[in-house]
Structures are given as C-alpha cells and as structure tokens.
Simulated scan of single mutants.
Amino acid sequence: MHAPFVSVVIPAYNEGERLPRFVAELTRVFLERSAPPVEFVVVDDGSAPKQAELQRASVEAAQARLATAGARHQFTYVAAPRNQERARPSGSAGVTRQRASRGWPSWTRMAPSAPRSFTDWWR
C-alpha cells in the first residue's frame, strides 16, 4: 500500500448490523472511482462480542477485496477492550474523541449517496 493521502476514522459501537453494509458500499465506491490512497480506520469502542465479530469480519472482508483488486486503499480495525464513553479518550485505541456542541453525528444516518459524495470531492 502507498502511504495514505487521508485517514478516515469510523467510530463503531455495537454497529454489527449496519457497519457491514456501510463498509461494503465504501469498498465498492472506492474500487470504482479514482481517488488518492485512503486509510479507513474502524474504531470499535468496546462493542459486545457478537457485534465486534460482525464489525471485524466486515473490515477484514473489505480489506481482502481491496488487496485482491490491487487498490491503494486500506481498511484497519482497532478495538478497545471496553467502552470508553463519549467524552473520554480511548487510550487503548489511541484515539481521542471530542464532544461536539450537539453531539456526534452518526455515520449510520448518512445519506446513501454519502460515500459517492466523498469520492466526488476528490475530483
């Protein structure tokens, strides 16, 4: 993999039912379109074991698909051993989250066109 041009952090807490669709769509879009190398880091903040397994499996499948296609992008899964709550730094994952004035917007509420819009931004 080339050094990533940009890193995108995707927070995930018990998103095992929704994250696989999102990751699959991101993978599909980034395989179809030209974009600088992007590193997607899915950070699991202490999800329940079944949810964590589904999340990890979706990231591993996406990375395998990117590697098979020879894509310059990369998916990585990082997991904290337990939930760190909203305003605390996730020391185990090396990620600090900050609270926005109105709370975090959920990636699960993004419009279906959001991944395409993101890649269109690079054009």
Score class of each variant (00 low, 15 high):
R18Q: 04
P112H: 03
H73K: 06
V38Q: 05
A69W: 13
A111E: 11
E25M: 03
A61K: 15
T96A: 15
Q55F: 05
F40H: 03
E85M: 15
R102G: 03
V95Y: 04
S117A: 13
G16C: 01
L19A: 06
E53Q: 15
R28C: 08
G94K: 10
S106H: 14
A67G: 01
V29E: 07
A87L: 07
V23N: 04
V6E: 02
F30C: 05
P49H: 10
L26E: 04
D44M: 04
I10M: 06
A61M: 14
Y77T: 08
F30Y: 10
E60N: 14
M1D: 15
W107P: 15
V9I: 10
F22L: 09
V29G: 04
Y13N: 10
F118E: 01
A69G: 13
V9N: 04
I10N: 02
R65I: 03
F118T: 05
L31V: 09
A35C: 00
T119A: 07
F40E: 02
R21V: 00
D44F: 06
T119W: 06
L66C: 03
E53H: 12
L19E: 06
S58T: 01
Q55E: 11
R82E: 08
P81F: 02
F118P: 03
S117G: 11
P115W: 06
V6S: 02
A111R: 10
E15T: 04
R88L: 09
F30T: 05
E85A: 14
D45V: 05
V59E: 04
V42Q: 07
V43E: 00
M110I: 13
A80G: 01
A69Y: 12
L26K: 03
M1P: 13
A24T: 08
S47G: 12
W121L: 15
E39S: 13
F75R: 09
A24W: 03
E60R: 14
T68M: 09
H73N: 08
Y13L: 15
Q84M: 11
V78Q: 11
A24P: 02
E60D: 15
A93I: 00
N14L: 11
F5V: 07
S101N: 11
I10S: 07
A35W: 03
R21S: 09
R116C: 01
W104K: 14
N83I: 04
K50C: 12
R109F: 12
P11M: 03
V78D: 09
R88W: 07
N83S: 00
F75A: 04
S7L: 08
R116M: 02
L54M: 12
Q55K: 09
S47C: 11
G70K: 12
A61P: 05
T96G: 13
Q84L: 07
T108G: 12
K50R: 15
N14S: 11
P112L: 01
V29M: 00
A114M: 10
N14Q: 13
G46W: 01
W107C: 12
A48R: 12
F118C: 00
W122D: 10
E32M: 01
Q55V: 07
V59G: 01
R88T: 07
A61D: 15
F75L: 06
D120R: 09
T119M: 09
R18V: 05
A67P: 05
R109Q: 15
V6G: 02
E39I: 08
V42A: 03
R97W: 12
E32W: 01
S117P: 08
R56V: 09
V9F: 05
R97I: 04
V6P: 00
P89Y: 10
